[in-house]
Simulated assay, not measured.
Amino acid sequence: MLTKYLFKFYFMKKLILVFCIAASVASCKKTATGNQQEVDMPSIKLNNKVSNTPYNPYNPILKNANTDFEIGVAINEGRFGNSLYTNLVKTQYNSITAENQMKFGEIQASQNSYTFGTDVTNFAKNNGINRVHGHAIMWYNGVPAWVNNAGGNATGETRKQIYRSILYNHIYNVFSFYYTQKDSNGNPLVKSWDVANEAFNDNGTYRSNETNVWAKELGAYDAVRLAFLYARQIADDLGDTNLKLFYNDYGHEYSNAKADAIFNMVNALKVIKSNNKPIIDGVGLQMHTSNTRTVTGNTNSIEYGINKMAATGLLVHISELDIRLSGGTVGDQDYRWYNIPKLYRTLVPSAQRWGITLWNVGDSDNWQGTAVAATLYAPNTYAKKSAYTNFYKGLNE
């Protein structure tokens, strides 16, 4: 097996010398979530470091590191004026996620008034990127005020019907619009959606009615179930029969309780069918993690989280990967940049790999701020960091 990977890496290195690239990056305004429960790890020194030098044509290309699955990135249309950013995105990645443009509050800030941004989908079409991941339909955060107030004085079944209608109509309009966006082969450009996002607390309980309007009005599990049921029915009615539907969350890697709760919920969802098809296709591990997270083992570890999601038999997407510095060393951080893709390839069967998406491109764009150095590229210059080569090698070796 080792010989196989060494040969593959050698062969890939020969191939990638023909590729040429300029550098670039992205932005984020994601809300910080949850209790991070840091776990101290010993400093682990790696030998596969590279100097923090500007990108040049002889560097390897991430999307070519492993052709078995896609390497994606979240992008923000607010960065499109930066050519370093856009050149890097279109050269390095073959899947993109809209960081904010496709969220509920961005699309339907006022009831029944839809604003569909096309910056991200047009960027994909114009640059030969044939996969966009939709993010996100149902989220407890970023909910417009009108949704919270929509029930008025209604009670009982009447009130539930109001919120079922809001959910159904939103999915219908969103899916209908993005179904019209086609890739270079004439197929729907948006290949997948995070249908439900962050329904659980770190201790494995559902978010409370006070923090999650969908749970309050429809029931914690029923809200998620209905979102997936509506999504499958609407996609099939549109003819978007290959659309993949995901549950997305964070914390799998530091809370066994949360990973187990997600496992149980998605296993319950996957036996529900519409038109003889399961209503859920996959699960996303956001993996907003740090240089102190435990990597291997059966307790609150990256290995446990990935392995648990693979055991669902569903598609597995590392959907929002960044690794912040939180004490410790860059060596600790690089160790995780290498081992997260390595564990993904080891634990997730090939047929279940939906890919790895980074959040975001460079430190200047990451939602946590420049100081945490959570991405592959240095701020402003987008010079590659040692994280870049370690991530590439984790994908490849």
Rank of each mutant, 00 (worst) to 15 (best):
G105L: 06
A26Y: 05
I107P: 02
I234L: 14
Q108C: 10
M138D: 06
D334L: 08
I16R: 04
P188M: 09
Y5N: 10
T118L: 02
Y388R: 00
V18N: 15
A311G: 14
A268Q: 15
Y335R: 08
V190Y: 04
P42Y: 11
G327C: 10
F116Y: 01
G152N: 03
I279Q: 01
T180E: 08
Y114E: 01
K191C: 00
N35K: 04
E303Q: 15
P42M: 13
A65I: 02
T205A: 01
R353Y: 12
G355E: 13
A74C: 06
E210W: 04
H170E: 06
N209V: 02
I280P: 11
V25Q: 08
V50D: 05
R131C: 13
S208W: 00
K244N: 06
G142R: 05
F200E: 04
V316D: 07
T357L: 13
W214T: 04
K384R: 15
R159I: 04
N242R: 07
Y10E: 00
Y5Q: 10
G331L: 11
H317T: 10
S176W: 06
K4A: 11
A383W: 12
Y230K: 10
K13T: 14
A74R: 02
P42D: 13
P379I: 12
N197S: 10
F11P: 03
F246W: 01
Y254Q: 05
T180Q: 12
E303Y: 07
A378P: 05
C20V: 11
I280E: 07
N242W: 00
N64V: 03
K258N: 06
Y230E: 04
M1W: 05
K90S: 12
L15M: 11
S110P: 02
S386G: 15
I272M: 00
N366I: 15
L395E: 03
S274I: 10
L88K: 11
T31F: 12
T312N: 15
S301N: 03
H252E: 08
T381C: 10
A257E: 04
N380S: 15
G284N: 05
E210M: 03
A136M: 08
I166R: 01
I129C: 02
I356N: 11
Y179H: 14
T158Q: 08
M41T: 12
I71Q: 06
Y55G: 08
K191P: 00
N35R: 11
T289S: 13
G142E: 09
D40A: 10
W367N: 11
Q333E: 14
D237Y: 12
D183Y: 06
L325Q: 08
N100D: 03
T294P: 05
L285Y: 03
K384E: 12
P278R: 00
I171Y: 05
A223P: 07
N307D: 15
K277T: 10
W214G: 07
E77N: 08
I306V: 09
A311M: 14
D363L: 07
H135T: 09
N52V: 14
F391K: 05
K8C: 04
V348W: 02
Q36F: 08
T294K: 14
N126W: 09
L325A: 14
K270E: 09
T67M: 02
Q286R: 07
A257N: 05
T33Q: 10
T312S: 14
N307M: 13
G105I: 05
A310V: 15
L46P: 06
R225D: 00
P57L: 07
R324K: 14
V50G: 00
N127T: 10
D40S: 15
G362H: 04
Y388E: 03
G117T: 05
R159Y: 01
A227W: 09
S165V: 02
